[in-house]
């Protein structure tokens, strides 16, 4: 395609031509990248899903020794008002006895209130409350036992029941998520 004229001034021409092509090419690429973003972003949780991402829970009707289960982000969350005995039991456990060592103090904000995601850390079944050898929860699927702090004590589950992010809005209300 190059004529003799082009070859003579090849160097200068190549630089200018390449610059133009490079600029056009990169400008196009930038646009294409920007264009791709909405298509990727649309799969992220949308506004209506994010609006339900946090749930407020009224604690006042819960008596000591009572648990409620609420749905948060599609998962069950156990909110338990622990009795004095349960709290003492949880705090007395030696770290060395725990497959997943964690102190009770780090798992609660107020010792009376235990808030945990009710999904067994083994394979995802929902543990049953007031059951098991450790006075806490028992998962019927594969026999994991959790204590009064929701920590795994016996069975195949590798980790303690997850504590979600929550805050006390006041003494009677927590906001989860």
């Amino acid at each position: 395609m190059d004529t003799k004229k082009d070859i003579d001034t090849a160097d200068a021409k190549v630089t200018r031509r390449d610059f133009l092509y490079l600029t056009t090419g990169s400008f196009t690429a930038v646009g294409a990248g920007a264009l791709a973003w909405p298509f990727i972003s649309q799969m992220n949780p949308d506004a209506s899903v994010k609006a339900l991402a946090s749930t407020e829970v009224d604690l006042s009707p819960i008596m000591p020794g009572q648990s409620i289960t609420i749905l948060w982000r599609g998962k069950p969350v156990f909110v338990r008002r622990r009795t004095e005995e349960e709290i003492a039991e949880a705090q007395a456990v030696e770290q060395i006895d725990l497959p997943d060592p964690e102190t009770d103090e780090t798992r609660v904000q107020k010792p009376e209130w235990l808030v945990m995601v009710g999904v067994c850390t083994h394979l995802g079944c929902i543990p049953l409350g007031n059951k098991g050898e450790y006075n806490g929860w028992f998962c019927p699927c594969h026999g994991s036992h959790y204590d009064t702090s929701g920590r795994i004590r016996k069975g195949p589950a590798p980790k303690n029941l997850e504590i979600p992010n929550y805050v006390f809005l006041n003494d009677n209300t927590i906001k989860i998520g």
Binding site: Q42, M43, D46, A47
Partner: peptide, 30 residues
Amino acid sequence: VLAMHYIADANLAFASVEHIMRDVNYGWLL
């Protein structure tokens, strides 16, 4: 990508399109 959010049910279709327009990220654009 619209089909990921649209619902082809007579009771829900119109609202699902509005859901796309209002809630889905960049749904209005798509």
